[in-house]
Design a binder for these strands. Structure first.
Lengths: 346, 346
DNA sequence: TTGTAAGCGTTATCAG
DNA sequence: CTGATAACGCTTACAA
């Protein structure tokens, strides 16, 4: 047990010679309390190192001043390391939450778990932020349910018309286009794409659409057989690149659906004696912290995690505060040019 | 507001035709409740999607089932990005906490803030984990105070005899020795050290001691003027290396007190036409995720963040559960050999 | 095995 | 501006 037993508002009421609700009011700086008593109470509270018991407060007020961050991962990815992009997001969300005067409860979940808002139902948090990559149909089902229950939550993910729930995400299509356009501008026309294009991963699909758009705008024909499946991880990027090479198709550049994939791709290329950017140009997506330190430094599409964290927090808080007309947020991406995209003389 | 008003244990008691404490017991799987009523109650609870209100529970039981993680940063470091090493720690702590059935409250603090256990005083958490680098004398003062108050907390940091509080940390002296020894084994004798050696940063000081030990064991004389101050960041590593170069001292290798410093060092060397590892060998410390992707891949000292997170969580929980004889934990480090340390022919 | 009564430390409501 | 009183939803202690 603790050495000291903590003082309560009743103790302070005694010492200050006022009623206990008055103490409560004074500590919240209520203007209803006269300046004199307010100061007296606050002074005593400080001397005793009194802190409001949040459980009592929350119980009574039915508010927690806490947000929950649920990071879900697809099975298989649940290894020792967390996707660095989400780690960055976690950092910015933590900061944004603190700036708004809220506490943040962080938790990992498997996509398979029953992450059904236990946090809000149990009054642990006023609202929830969901973060993760995973099968879209699975999680949209979960989200619909939460939505029906009237939970306050926002999800990092694809911003799509008419889907249930509130989303914050970046413009993946624009980002995908930006990256591929850069490759085309550098003279490349045989550009492979590493990522998914199915409905199950709309973010990847949109990046692929951007890739397609860039080709179309520049009137470069697309060879769809240059798209290989890859999911998030370095390993999958590595494997996809091996396949690409084995296919014996001609290519001079690769557009990767994530930086992690790009890292795997570079490794596979190197193992096959192909140099980046001299032989093959590469663009990534995300701009994780490692990207700028890669050899060569990775040209990539930056998702602004700082703005994203802020938008996520502000969005849930609007929900929590019952503001109407809260709508999803689409963030723009930015091309970060570094050293991984050489020019090609067609 | 939420659409639904949440069911309470009283509601369930009504429906099940039992008293309300019985509901409470049944839901906790108390063997005191007959199997029959237990199942009946649980079924109803599930149908109503009932969740225990944690605030009420915590208030009554004076326990929160929650741990708080306070990440503190020295001023100046409070920029957009968090030290990646701590980000890794955060990941592993989150996992370890969840494994023990606790929730985790995450918060950033400036070292200057009054992080005086508000979390425990306010009954937000049963225990606290402190994480960060900062001026030792400042934080040891804070820690003494907490200790006197009987708070339950553990700090990631230097494990030193007779300091107040409970610590988990890695063996920095051993780690420092490991890295420098590796350089010496590779034929280097003029080895610079980038880091602090003052009491204010005992972890850095210990790494420097390890550097000294390695020299002594191999009977290589130390040139103390080859030590330059650097703190945590890439920028400081960059600046220190610039100074080192400007000093015109002879050196063939650098032992860095952190990977971030090493990254800055490599950058500075490159700008001065010095190649790693051909001209200069480098070892880092931490093994952050970026380390293996650097050019060249960084040889470094790994701190096992996985084990560290586990030890931190288990340590606080022992405190929380009033176990006696809880002692600090010293984790061993490991040399990870990659490509940044060339051999030198003396 | 179950029920009764009390209380955890606040904030809300109302009356003065 | 202040005070009395009730309530938030649960767990504990004790009685039956």
């Amino acid at each position: 047990m603790k050495g000291k037993n903590k003082p309560t508002s009743v103790d302070i009421a005694h010492l200050a010679g006022v009623s206990q609700p008055t103490v409560s009011r004074a500590l919240r700086n209520s203007p209803l309390v006269s300046l004199e008593t307010r100061l007296r109470v606050q002074k005593i509270a400080q001397e005793l190192n009194y802190k409001v018991d949040v459980n009592a407060r929350n119980l009574r007020s039915q508010r927690t001043n806490t947000l929950a961050l649920l990071l879900f991962e697809d099975k298989g990815e649940g290894e020792r390391f967390i996707n660095p992009f989400f780690l960055s997001m976690l950092g910015s969300i933590t900061r944004a939450t603190a700036n708004r005067g809220y506490d943040l409860l962080v938790s990992f979940q498997q996509l398979s778990d029953d992450w059904n808002a236990e946090y809000e139902d149990a009054n642990k948090a006023d609202g929830i932020i969901f973060l993760g990559y995973g099968d879209y149909t699975t999680y949209i089902k979960r989200i619909s349910e939460l939505d029906r229950q009237g939970a306050h939550f926002v999800t990092w993910g694809p911003v799509i018309e008419n889907q249930p729930g509130l989303f914050v995400g970046c413009n993946n299509e624009q980002g995908g286009q930006l990256g591929t356009q850069h490759l085309i501008n550098n003279g490349h026309t045989k550009i492979a794409f590493l990522g998914d294009e199915s409905k199950d991963y709309p973010e990847f699909r949109d990046r692929y659409r951007g890739y397609l758009n860039a080709h179309q705008e520049s009137k470069v024909s697309v060879d769809e057989s240059l798209r290989f499946n890859a999911f998030f991880s370095e390993e999958s990027g590595y494997a996809a690149t091996k396949e690409l090479i084995k296919s014996n198709k001609e290519f001079t550049a690769i557009s990767c659906a994530s930086d992690l994939i790009a890292i795997g791709a570079i490794k596979a290329l190197r193992e096959n004696g192909l140099k980046v950017p001299n032989d093959i140009a590469i663009v990534g997506f995300d701009d994780i912290p490692t990207a700028e330190h890669l050899a060569p430094a990775l040209t990539t599409i930056r998702q602004d995690t700082f703005a994203a964290g802020q938008a996520l927090v502000d969005s849930v808080l609007m929900l929590v505060n019952d503001e109407k007309e809260v709508s999803s947020t689409l963030l723009e991406t930015k091309l970060i040019i570094r050293d991984s995209c050489g020019t090609h003389n067609g």
